[in-house]
Amino acid sequence: MASKKTPEINATSTADIAFLLLVFFLATTTMNVDSGMFRRLPPYQPDIENAPKIAKRNILQVLVNRNDLLSVNGELTDVNNLKAKTIEFLLNPNNNGDLPAKEIKQIDLLGNVEVSKGVVSLQSDKGTSYNMYIAVQDQLAAAFNEVRDQKALSKWGKKYATLNQEEQDAVRAWIPMTISEAEPKSVK
């Protein structure tokens, strides 16, 4: 009686093969997710003659020099105080004459609201360290995000991040991220 069964394939080495593949993928891939601060650059304009004139009260002038010293409206400031100053500048709670003016705007979902005309003007030197520059950008972004959170809480009782798309758009129109970076100066 000739039973012609095909012999079973030895599967012992499958584990080894899979291990090889696994090690290959471990070695050639990275797990880190890119993260950072998204910004949009202004379009390139060779002539900056027709820069819009902005009243002095509407500008928060942030300067960072080559020694990583920070000045806000001409006053030497620590980075940790920048957020508080920016929030005060954006909100102008007491309608102070030195802080930005507000204009009434019609925004979807919100109706007529007061929108600050304030612009943060950021200028850095060639010698400023990138670390400091990011710290300043971070503090400014933190200020804007906190004000947006406040507004979202007062309107919907939720934080900005948990709002839906339309509500986020409305808050963004209410508190626009107005950080303007000065054109680099060729000689300084």
Binding site: S35, G36, R40, G127, Y130
Partner: peptide, 28 residues
């Protein structure tokens, strides 16, 4: 890199503006 100075970054940003590639992300 966190230990570079802004000079080269500003120059790069100007080049990106000239190339009209305006969406940037500061890696952090």
């Amino acid at each position: 890199d966190r230990f570079t100075t802004m000079g080269i970054v500003t120059d790069l940003k100007q080049e990106l503006r000239k190339a009209n590639s305006l969406r940037i992300n500061y890696g952090a």
